[in-house]
């Protein structure tokens, strides 16, 4: 009896898609306005989210951040830059000391990961490291989204 060969499945590759038409740069920048009050910082991060990285990520980040912004708007809450957090590092070759690696002007709030880790500082640090890991368009979308959700959760908790 011939050996059984499983049916051939082509390796998985994410489909290549163009960035969706109709992404409104100003709308995304407005959604980040309270997190990134400096206009140049905001333009920089908006570019990283909408013009850099894989095309499908641009649309995904746009959708997620605008949904979070809508939720914040309904709750009448502004997401502001965290007073303490883990900034998104630039992905430069690892020739510099960790404290010399340049960072983006956007951070994952300590309060967000602290809430999930429930007092486990090691876990909180590990979660923050996961969120800022990866290419900049990805990590920046993570940081923005987590900061926005954190602001929303804090506001809802305060109203209970």
């Amino acid at each position: 009896m011939p050996p059984h060969h499983p049916p051939h499945h082509p390796p998985h590759h994410p489909p290549h898609r163009d960035a969706p038409a109709g992404l409104d740069r100003e709308r995304l920048a407005d959604a980040l306005a309270t997190l990134l009050p400096d206009a140049r910082d905001r333009a920089f991060i908006t570019r990283c989210l909408l013009d850099e990285g894989p095309h499908h990520h641009r649309g995904a980040s746009y959708a997620l951040i605008l949904l979070a912004a809508r939720a914040l708007s309904l709750a009448d809450v502004d997401a502001v830059a965290p007073s303490s957090g883990t900034p998104v590092p630039m992905r430069v070759p690892p020739t510099r000391a960790a404290d010399e690696v340049p960072v983006y002007p956007l951070a994952v709030p300590d309060s967000a990961v602290g809430r999930i880790a429930a007092g486990d500082a090691h876990l909180a640090g590990a979660l923050a490291a996961c969120l800022v890991d990866g290419p900049p368009h990805h990590a920046l979308a993570n940081a923005a989204l987590v900061a926005m959700l954190d602001a929303l959760i804090r506001a809802l908790e305060a109203r209970r």
Partner: peptide
């Protein structure tokens, strides 16, 4: 390139 463009604000 795609790797260095996000390293510069402008």
């Amino acid at each position: 390139g795609p790797d260095t463009r996000p390293h510069f604000r402008e």
